[in-house]
Write a protein that binds this DNA or RNA. Structure first.
Lengths: 188, 188, 188, 188
DNA sequence: CATGAATGAGCTTTCATTCAT
DNA sequence: TATGAATGAAAGCTCATTCAT
């Protein structure tokens, strides 16, 4: 019964923010879901906005960690791309609420500077990775941000499709889409 | 001075919904942005939910009209794909708020049946178009929804990138990305 | 088509006030019922409160006139009582909305001094009539106001019973109740 | 200092509803009268309509209890009638606001089924009591509802007269009116 | 004169936040 | 430390009243 109220509150908030959005979620709802009193939330978070920002940064950090876990530093670029692609997919499927929450919250009016800059730092990781491939002449002559749009944009839309049950995420389909994305960004 | 309040209210709402979401936008905010009294909004819309639905359907209709405008019915599939891609880009750039609003609002809990079915009709247009390419053997062996994720997902993410000023949408860049998307979905 | 808007507005207001009460009736409702524009009402009445007061006074005057119509000045007191009783009944049945409106509005917080004093004047008529009987030794040794409570209270409650369809107001029943009321107030 | 807010709110509402009616009383008015915040009312009552219904049922229950308290089951009908008459008077004088509120609220559009049926149950008590007298041949050949109109109508009007200070309710006066009412309904 | 579109004060209700316990 | 009752500011919405036409 190692109660970690701070953690429970964040988990409850993430679930509800993902389902109903920030403004559609009330503090009492979070309290109920976290099984604490409403006042308790204010012992751990200054206010609702601080809570959502802390949650966002935590989610982004976890997301970044997932991406970097087992990164094949010694393998070739093709292999590194495959790793990032599959880790993005994996995160979106294993933490669908976090993934949805992050994507819905990027650019939200209630994010503070710290949160925005944390997310940029995360995106930089992907960008740096792609830059490496560009320098090696493996990628097309397009800005890295274009590659991000293609790869991240695809995976983001895909995760919705999986969540809505429109597509079933089996290995063959994922392999096909990974190949598509690679073909979209790789040179000649 | 022929004020069209109905139109002004919709425009104001679209801007605010795009920036802050439905629940984060208050009726007084819309009234102020539209330069009308708060009560006036209720002469034109039964309630906030009817307003957002009417706005959504209008935006989708405009979006669909843009896609179909000048559709090269007599040209080959490659040309048709290019047309759809560029029209999607065009709409996302000419009506960035509408584009963002539509994408943020699809699946929202406050959409009524009419709105959902209108949007499905729009998506069907894109899916049918892709099916045609599949039947002609021009596309990879992937579900149409995967193509949509790649193309629509890319454009959606790209429009954010343009809006945030991260990339400048010049002709060469767009041509490059269009080529990337085509390569991502086309067979052999 | 001798349009008398002033009259139409009062009639419409009376109907609605009787049905829904003063606060439950909106000015646009009255306008629609009277088949005039909402603004027109303000050409004839300074505001809603002035309207309800004017209506009240008019209704009381009409009520008083009904009571006095055909008053058998030359007949004996028993006959005069019978006349008043039946005229009260008649008014409550022929103008049920007016009767209900008057009774619901007496003592209302929105009545002005003029209206209150007009109603008192009306009650004085009944009281004077009863005083006459008292002086003649025909009535019990009770204050006139007690007689009013008995007779007016009975008729008021009875009219509800008729309106709700609980009792059917046939001649025999009315004659019985008139006799009861007389027995209640008459001496020996 | 054991504040009972639930009770305070009901008391405040009863006072204001009696004075101004349901639609003429605002929730902030009730809050101020009860010396609580406006939001607090919604911790105790789902909404204004639920509040008025709970108040109505409570008042009717209290009214019914008053009527039945000390009912002389073993005495003759004349004595039972006297008991009911005096208890009606007592309630109207001890709880004038409740009495006025009940009478103004019977038949109101905002009463729910439960409330209506509770009131009917109360009226049935009076009717059954009168029926008993009719069966014993003690009362005139009139419907029970006519007796109710006479007795209840009289008392209702009388209570207004007392409240307005027009009559002073001393024992002699009440005895006189009780006798009048009995004479009005009793046979022979 | 008559209208009804427009308004904003004020309604009912919700909810982020506080604080006595 | 933890609670949830209490609050009041502010939400969505209504409506008495005004005024340009």
């Amino acid at each position: 019964m190692a109660e970690n109220k701070h953690e429970n509150i964040l988990r409850a908030a993430q679930k509800l923010f993902a389902e109903r959005g920030y403004d559609g979620t009330t503090v009492p709802m979070i309290a109920e879901e976290a099984k604490v009193g409403a006042g308790t939330i204010y012992r751990y978070f200054e206010n609702k906005q601080k809570l959502v920002n802390e949650l966002f940064r935590g989610s982004v950090a976890q997301f970044a960690a997932t991406l970097q876990a087992g990164f094949p530093e010694q393998k070739d670029f093709r292999e590194k791309f495959r790793h990032v692609f599959y880790q993005l997919i994996r995160y979106s499927r294993e933490q669908p609420e976090a993934f949805r929450f992050i994507n819905a919250t990027v650019n939200a009016y209630f994010l503070d500077e710290q949160s925005k800059s944390d997310f940029e730092g995360f995106m930089d990781f992907i960008e740096r990775h792609l830059d490496e491939g560009k320098e090696a002449g493996l990628l097309r002559d397009l800005p890295s941000q274009a590659f991000i749009a293609i790869v991240y944009g695809t995976i983001f839309h895909l995760s919705r499709t999986f969540e809505d049950g429109i597509l079933e995420p089996d290995d063959e389909l994922l392999a096909g889409i990974e190949k598509s994305c690679w073909d979209a960004i790789s040179a000649g």
